[in-house]
């Protein structure tokens, strides 16, 4: 696993990913952590397989007792199936996750950690002065789904939006946007179900000041690539599973 510092000005953003030791058939994921003083917040901590390196790596940056909060953008196993293990490691922590998934996410094991439901309209967390916003991104792709926005660092953790299916060892940032769209297109057309939800989200996100857009899979977008992504996504027709032509292509 690799880690990389994304932002360091009063508080820190760190990305963890590109785990070379993960089993081949498991999708590679990016995990994020914000540290502010004695509080650490992990976003989309990942699946069971990624837990050992995650625990080993996050605790190089933050004391284990300072990990007070975690976040799950939605209910997928690659997002939060490690919950049962975090539940042993940080029993006093809180999990912020969509209210609609509580009964589902608890199947991963949540005896000690407190489940804090995020309402459909969103919410936020105050890490001793560093305020992070939970931005609704419903139906992209899960029916209850949130991004995390940091207005000070100008970073948007966008969950599965902006995800790309990358080869192992790819750099953390997009270098050639047009080239990169090839790795995103099928994922967005197939995993994202609704053009209407997409439009909602784009309208909302265009109002935010974003330097880095950080998805849960693949590379991160920096500077103008964020705007490029929004334009590209806007023009993309999503929800293609029932299109026979598409089904044939993916078979």
């Amino acid at each position: 696993m690799k880690d990389s510092l994304l932002y360091d000005n009063g508080h820190k953003w760190i990305v963890f990913g590109r785990d070379e030791d993960k089993p081949e058939k498991i999708i590679d994921t990016n995990q994020y952590m914000v540290i502010n003083g004695k509080r650490a917040f992990i976003m989309d901590p990942g699946g069971i397989e990624v837990f050992p390196p995650m625990l080993a790596f996050v605790t190089r940056h933050a004391d284990i007792d300072n990990i007070t909060d975690i976040f799950a953008s939605h209910q997928d196993p690659d997002i939060i199936s490690s919950l049962g293990l975090w539940d042993k490691a940080i029993p006093n922590a809180r999990l912020h996750a969509p209210w609609i998934w509580e009964g589902f996410i608890r199947h991963f094991g949540c005896d000690n950690i407190t489940y804090v439901s995020i309402a459909d309209e969103g919410g936020g967390i105050d890490l001793d002065g560093t305020k992070l916003e939970f931005i609704p991104a419903h139906y992209l792709h899960a029916s209850g789904n949130f991004n995390v926005y940091d207005p000070k660092a100008k970073i948007l953790m966008s969950g599965d939006i902006g995800a790309a299916l990358e080869s192992a060892g790819a750099p953390f940032f997009v270098e050639d946007f047009d080239e990169h769209t090839k790795k995103m297109e099928y994922f967005h057309r197939r995993w994202m179900p609704s053009n209407d939800a997409k439009k909602h989200w784009i309208d909302r996100i265009r109002k935010l000041d974003i330097d880095i857009m950080a998805p849960q899979h693949g590379r991160l977008f920096k500077g103008d690539d964020v705007k490029r992504f929004l334009d590209w996504f806007e023009a993309l027709d999503v929800g293609c599973a029932n299109d026979q032509e598409e089904v044939r292509k993916s078979a």
């Binding site: 050992p52 625990l55 190089r60 293990l85």
Partner: peptide, 16 residues
């Protein structure tokens, strides 16, 4: 097994 692995990866001189 997961915690064993985490312990080894973190290393004996790791802060935690």
């Amino acid at each position: 097994e997961a915690f064993n692995k985490a312990c080894n990866l973190h290393g004996e001189d790791g802060p935690n």
